[in-house]
């Protein structure tokens, strides 16, 4: 059996978990095993329908009160116990902070290797993996040999695929965790005082780099004209102190997956591009036709962003696209 850790928000599966399920189902089909999932916290059983539609036969739910709030080591312990009880071939986690953290704890407790950022698995005598290094700038082919194969799936690399199956059977699972496992537990969630759409969820992302010369006002005004749009920046702009780090797109910042990404005055270093490779379309605004970003973009405007951005905002208004 192949066990997938899925994350949800009050019963709604998140995108990266759906991606993990797609890769896990591929592994399950190659090994001839069934696909199961484990979900934690209140509302976990509400995941059954969506999980079933993505190929899950049985959903193991952990709704223990002590584990209602995320606790990395306790979740890792629960995954170990669930995997051992069910005799799993592989445990697959989404490529999120929690996914990697939980599975790392499980790997250490099982004394097994773990492969992170996996994008493809060919099951032979060993698991022949394709995984990402350097944020995806480099691809690694490697072999995983383990009693239980532990993988995290790189975010936004595998497309979710529905099977249209019935809701998964729900089986409550009661792990045996002790106080030591609960030493670290989520104590609070603080809402950001930044208003607007989070970068990772925006359908349109406009961002600025060194070419803004520190003036983001036109880009801000453009973002305000577009629904579900967010403003980002390059690492260079953050290092200049023009934008907070939370706005940074790139290998060590936010990873975005919008319908369209509009980098303005950004040269397009490799480390920046790995942050926006999930974008469906890229429309670059840059004065330099030789900039790397023009090579990577689908559309380009070779002009000064300080002139182009207000013109786009005006055109949107003229066509009645008010936000």
């Amino acid at each position: 059996m192949v066990l997938t850790i899925v994350e949800h928000d009050d019963g709604e599966l998140d995108d990266v978990s759906l991606q993990a399920l797609a890769l896990a189902r591929d592994v399950a089909e190659q090994t001839g095993e069934s696909l199961d999932a484990v979900a934690f916290g209140p509302g976990a059983d509400a995941v059954a329908e969506a999980a079933g539609a993505h190929g899950v036969e049985t959903l193991h739910t952990v709704e223990d009160d002590a584990l209602a709030d995320y606790a990395p080591e306790a979740y890792g312990r629960a995954v170990v116990q669930c995997a051992e009880e069910l005799g799993t071939e592989a445990v697959i986690a989404p490529g999120t902070d929690r996914g990697a953290e939980t599975l790392s704890h499980a790997a250490a407790k099982l004394d097994e290797p773990m492969a992170a950022e996996v994008t493809d698995v060919e099951v032979g005598e060993a698991y022949e993996l394709t995984r990402q290094r350097w944020g995806g700038t480099l691809i690694e082919h490697s072999k995983l040999t383990a009693d239980t194969n532990l993988l995290t799936v790189a975010a936004n690399e595998v497309s979710p695929s529905e099977t249209g199956g019935d809701a998964a059977a729900v089986e409550p699972f009661a792990p045996d965790v002790d106080d030591g496992d609960l030493r670290v537990q989520l104590t609070d969630i603080e809402q950001s005082d930044v208003e607007g759409v989070p970068l990772g969820e925006a359908r349109v992302v406009v961002s600025g780099g060194r070419g803004t010369d520190g003036d983001f006002s036109e880009l801000e005004a453009l973002v305000e004209r577009v629904p579900n749009a967010a403003l980002g920046s390059s690492r260079a702009a953050v290092n200049e102190g023009w934008r907070p780090h939370d706005d940074q797109i790139g290998q060590t910042g936010a990873k975005i997956a919008p319908e369209i990404y509009i980098p303005a005055g950004i040269s397009g270093a490799v480390q920046h591009m790995v942050g926006c490779k999930g974008a469906e379309n890229i429309l670059a605004i840059n004065t330099d036709p030789e900039a790397a970003i023009i090579q990577k973009a689908d559309y380009a405007v070779i002009a000064d962003l300080h002139e182009v951005a207000p013109a786009i905002a005006e055109e949107l208004e003229a066509r009645g696209h008010a936000e």
Binding site: V204, I260, E280, L283, Y299, I302, E314, E315, R319, H321
Partner: peptide, 23 residues
């Protein structure tokens, strides 16, 4: 990349793209 223009006049084409993508 498809070059939409080399001045702020490209704004019309940019908005065409945004409309096409329904964003």
């Amino acid at each position: 990349a498809e070059i939409l223009g080399e001045s702020s006049e490209a704004a019309e084409d940019v908005v065409d793209v945004l409309e096409e993508l329904e964003v």
